[in-house]
Structures are given as structure tokens and as C-alpha cells.
Design a protein around this nucleic acid. Structure first.
Lengths: 244, 244
DNA sequence: CGCCCTTTTGACTGGTGTCAAGCTAAGTGG
DNA sequence: CCACTTAGCTTGACACCAGTCAAAAGGGCG
């Protein structure tokens, strides 16, 4: 609790200096923002733009499921912890993404949710959202699409893992980041990684060393250049083809 | 389980030669059957129990999405084909399972769907199901649960792939088959694999040889015995622990 | 019984993990 | 402003697991 309080203070301080009260009209995810799509219908359903500090835990696994988290800015990761206290990441989320869809069936959070950086999230209560579905057909369709496309994305992720080698996984990962930013209207060959090498390696089922070695390899092949968390894609086609 | 399967095969044989009118009361998946749950509401929405022969293609990828496939008996696999004509399986489905949830968002079938054995499926049209959702709250909740649990299952599959070694993947796979049959009311340590080694290997991201070697290894460890497509689990706890 | 397809087993190679050391960059305190 | 500290990242040497190629064994079906 003390720790939580401390980090809350931190984020308020950080955000204040950068004036965090961004109006939704200026929100980076603009037309893709689920809260905005719901805006006309929701009233008090949505607690908008809750701030979380880097590394802050939003949710610990197995607590009762009450609401989704929709990222306004920053990034989240979801992970499970195995019996031997090993942490396994199974999801990385960017602005515009919704977290918690898997919890509808289990009625509890299946994963821990943690902030990768200082992050603003909109919190959307499940029960109240459901009550909207009966009256608003567009809301219903939107939720179905979100669920279905999540399944589709996981199918693609499974393919990535089950067959691809380390360099192909890394290429797939970086290209998918590019595409996700592009879909949100940020089409740039410069990509800022929100997570460190350890998180990337963990997510891709590799080791830190292998990620590092293959990043070097991609640079030698003139496909991209990497400086810390900054990636510049030099050859988008080559990157795409490598990832298949 | 073997006995049950045998009788199912027998029934199927007789049905193929004569008619397919198996009463739902004899259906193996009984209370978990989605069509039955919808029975009171659906009328002509459901084409019940369409027969498909082993290896028959139900759906080729990219055709427009119209309906879900719910397995009555037998088994299906879904797969994509890469540019170099390589076939990658991304789903294996058993009686009671529903196939096609990922297509809601894309409005087309993302995968090919093929019968692993002679299979009876109930076909459920999406559009007409949707019209039920507005009036039937239990139907709505059921579909949400199906979608959500599919996401949850894929999350677990991703974990399996991203970190586990060959023997652990195989253990996870066999244990998950056991659990899936158990959830459908067939709690038996005897498991009949519907697919060949090549399909298992493909699905697990391994080679046939590695699957075979590790099956031998599991037998040497007295965890199970395997004869062709018949698996007998000798030590369920050991199997579960190995898969984590 | 014999053919063919599937599965198993063996020998070898290569990619990735492991362990260890060195490097870089950012933050801290003097 | 600079030396120090520390965490994160990179590079190297080696071992091991899984892929590849090859051959033998098993199983189903005419």
C-alpha cells in the first residue's frame, strides 16, 4: 500500500510536468478508441484515464474480474507466474488495445497485468458494458469483433512460435509492432520499444542473449538499426519476408 | 473410452450406409452440446449432423464466413498454408468444440478446415445466431463465454510453445486431450489419438522423429504407454507435472 | 502374403541455451 | 563537472537439444 502510494505520487509528478490532461480529441488512438466509440452511451461506466506508474501492478492473477483495461498511452504486459516463480509474459499491449477479454469466461483475471511505462488507461466495467449490448447493436458488434480478432491474433502468434527460428520470431515481432502502430495511425519506420530485452526474450520464448545476437544479425543484414530501445527499420520488405 | 469410441465408430458405419439420424439423446457430448442448448430457440438455423469423410476439406481458407462448425463426433483440424506450400496446423478440435470463432472479425475463414476422421458436424449460421442474441440473454452469454475461453486456451497454447521443451510440449498435449475428454464427461486414462504423428508434430512445432523419440522417452519413464494411436496414461500426476 | 505407408531408431549437424566476461549508458554523489 | 555505481546490453566459448538424413521395423489393407 505504501509502495502503491509512493508510485502514485511519482506518476502524478511525472505526468504533471508533461501536462497529462490530454483531451480525448488529441488522443493518439483517435478513431480507434473504444471509450470514444462508447462515449455517447456510457456515462459513468467508464473511469477515464487512470494513471499507473512504470512497473506498477494493475492486477494480480486470480482476483475477480470486474473490468477491462483500455490503453490510452503507454504500454502494459500480461504474465503468469509458474510454480517455480518463473514469470512468463503472454501479452504485450499498446495504446488502443483492450486487456482482459480472456476473463469473461473464467470470471477472474487469468494473468497479472503490469505497466511497462507510465501509462494511462481507461477502465471499462464488464457488467455495465453488457447491459449496453442489449440495446446498442453497434456496441454488441464491436465487442464480438474485438473478441474474434483477439483469437485471430493468438492464432498467428501460435504459428510464429511453433515453427519460426529466433531471427524469424524477432522479425515477426518487430514487424507486428510496426503494423500495430500503423493501424493506429502512426506509420513510422522509427519504433520505440516500450519493453527491455528481457521482456522481448521472454515473450518470444528466447533468451536475452539470443535476442541480442539476432538484433545484431539483423543490423549486419542492413534490415534495421537498433540503439537501445530505438529501432529504425531500413528494409521493411526484408523484415516482413523474414517473418513470413 | 476405447469401447465408447468403438461403438461410436460402429454407429457411424451403420449410419453411413443407411441414414445419419442419430438422436441427440445419444450424442456423446450431451449437456455440453451447443446445438442442444440452442435447441428451443433455433429452428432452421441449424443444419444438424452433416457427415464428412476422413481427410475431406470442409472449408478452404479465405472463402466468406457464413457458419460455425460444431463437432458431434470425430475430429477436425484447422491449418494455414504458407507461400512455400507448407501446411501449418493451428487447431485440433474434438466433439463438442466449435470451429470458426476467429472468423467473426475477418468475415472470412482464416484457416482451412479438414476432417481427421469420419466426422459428424452441426452447422450453425452466424447471421441467424446473431439475431437470437438480442432476444435470448443466455445465448448471448454462451457465445461470449465461448469466445473468451477460446482466447484463454490460445494463451495457454502460446505459453506451451514459447517455453517448453519437446517432452514437455508432448506431455502438455496429451494431458490437455485427457482434460478435454474429461470435461465432456469421458474421464478415461485411455486416449485414442484422432491424428497421426505428423499432425501432432506439426501442431506442436516439432518433427515426427522428435515426437516419436519423446513418446518412447515417456514410456521409459513409465508415465504412459503408446501403441499406434492408442495412449494409456499410467501416471497422470507425472504427466501433468511434466507439462506444468 | 506382400506392398505401402507410418512409425521408430540411429548417426550426425546446427541452432539455441548456458555460463561468463566485457561493454554501454544512465543515474548518483562528491 | 567528473568519477563511481549499477543495470541493461552485447559478445564469446561451449554444451545440449532438436532437426536432418538415412535405414529399419511395424501395421493396415488388398
Amino acid at each position: 500500500m505504501i509502495i502503491l502510494f509512493y508510485s502514485m505520487q511519482n506518476i502524478f509528478k511525472t505526468l504533471r510536468s508533461k501536462s497529462y490532461s490530454v483531451p480525448c480529441e488529441l488522443c493518439s488512438i483517435s478513431s480507434l478508441c473504444i471509450p470514444r466509440l462508447l462515449n455517447n452511451n456510457l456515462g459513468n461506466i467508464l473511469d477515464r484515464k487512470m494513471p499507473y506508474a512504470k512497473d506498477e501492478i494493475l492486477v494480480t492473477a486470480n482476483i475477480p474480474f470486474t473490468k477491462f483495461y483500455i490503453i490510452h498511452s503507454g504500454a502494459l504486459k500480461t504474465f503468469v507466474t509458474t510454480s517455480d516463480n518463473y514469470q512468463q509474459i503472454n501479452g504485450l499491449y499498446l495504446p488502443g488495445d483492450i486487456v482482459g477479454l480472456d476473463s469473461i469466461s473464467t470470471k477472474k483475471y487469468n494473468n497479472n497485468i503490469q505497466a511497462l511505462s507510465n501509462t494511462l488507461v481507461c477502465e471499462l466495467y464488464y457488467d455495465e458494458l453488457m447491459s449496453l449490448i442489449d440495446t446498442q447493436k453497434n456496441v454488441r458488434d464491436m465487442i464480438f469483433n474485438l473478441l474474434s480478432s483477439d483469437i485471430y491474433n493468438y492464432q498467428k502468434l501460435v504459428l510464429c512460435y511453433s515453427q519460426k527460428k529466433a531471427d524469424e520470431r524477432l522479425a515477426t515481432f518487430i514487424y507486428s509492432l510496426y503494423r500495430r502502430y500503423e493501424q493506429k495511425g502512426h506509420s513510422s519506420l522509427n519504433i520505440k520499444l516500450m519493453m527491455n530485452r528481457a521482456d522481448i526474450a521472454n515473450y518470444l520464448g528466447l533468451t536475452i542473449e539470443t535476442v541480442s545476437r539476432n538484433l545484431t544479425k539483423l543490423q549486419e543484414q542492413n534490415i534495421l538499426s537498433a540503439k537501445g530501445k530505438h529501432i529504425f527499420i531500413k528494409d521493411l520488405n526484408a523484415l516482413m519476408n523474414l517473418g513470413n
